[in-house]
Amino acid sequence: VIYIESLILGFEYSPHDKFLQSVNAVQLSLYAIFMHGFFGQTVGKMLVGVKVLNHENEQPIGLLQSLRRESVTLLLNVIWVILSIVASVMVYQGVEDLSNLVTTILIFAALSLIWGISEFVTMLFSEKRRAVHDFIGKTVVVRI
């Protein structure tokens, strides 16, 4: 997505640009929120024939339930963007002691890793293979 945007908007794309990657992650979270909220599926889910539904009654979910389902991932991605901006500004201003920033980034990276692992673990051991974000959003993914 970010590569196509770079072609359209005329900025240089680099797969090593952490700021662009964090912006892309926010965009992907917003994409998931809107697609699940309006259609119950992303394009990938459409291709494999699965859909996100309300766990309690297997009815379609709305935008609010989709937002709740993706809220942690969206928050983590927004924080990554903010940390990228703060790091860029500090480096640009020539701040010499970046130890607090580095510590913050490492702690946040560890928390993000823990979140990712918890998603897989809960999916592997829960009824209907629901991940943590499904429990938060009160959703379930079903074959259609």
Rank of each mutant, 00 (worst) to 15 (best):
L64R: 14
T42E: 07
Q59M: 11
N57P: 04
Q59H: 11
R69T: 09
S71K: 13
I61H: 01
K51H: 00
V50D: 06
H55G: 00
E56C: 02
V48W: 12
V48S: 06
L47A: 12
L67M: 12
L67G: 10
Q41P: 10
L64N: 12
Q65T: 10
L53N: 04
V52I: 08
G40V: 09
F38G: 14
G49S: 00
G62F: 07
E70L: 13
G49D: 01
P60N: 08
V43R: 13
S71F: 15
G44D: 09
E70N: 15
N54P: 03
K45W: 03
Q41H: 11
E70F: 13
V48G: 03
V43H: 12
T42C: 05
L53E: 04
G62Q: 10
G44Y: 10
V52T: 09
V43P: 11
L53G: 02
R69A: 09
G40D: 05
L64Y: 14
E58V: 00
K51V: 01
I61L: 02
E58G: 00
Q65P: 09
S71I: 15
P60E: 04
E56A: 07
Q41T: 11
F38L: 15
S71G: 14
P60Y: 06
H55R: 02
E70A: 13
R69Q: 10
V48P: 04
V50I: 13
L53S: 03
S66A: 14
T42V: 10
V48Q: 04
R69V: 06
E70K: 15
V43M: 14
V43E: 13
V52K: 01
R68I: 11
Q59C: 05
I61Y: 02
Q65V: 08
G44I: 11
N57W: 04
E58K: 02
L47P: 02
V48N: 08
Q65N: 08
V52H: 02
M46H: 05
L67N: 08
N57H: 07
K51D: 00
L63T: 11
L63D: 07
L63F: 13
L63I: 15
L53R: 05
R68Y: 12
S66G: 12
E56H: 08
S71T: 14
L47Q: 10
V50C: 07
L67S: 12
T42R: 03
N54A: 03
L64Q: 13
M46I: 10
G44W: 09
N54Q: 05
G40R: 10
G49H: 00
G62T: 07
L63A: 09
K51P: 00
L47R: 12
K51A: 00
K45C: 05
R69H: 13
G62D: 09
S71C: 15
V52D: 03
P60C: 06
L47C: 10
I61C: 01
Q41S: 10
G40Y: 06
V48H: 08
V52G: 02
N57I: 09
P60W: 04
G40N: 06
L64A: 14
L64V: 15
G40K: 09
Q65Y: 03
N54T: 06
N54C: 04
L63W: 12
R69G: 08
M46F: 08
V52C: 02
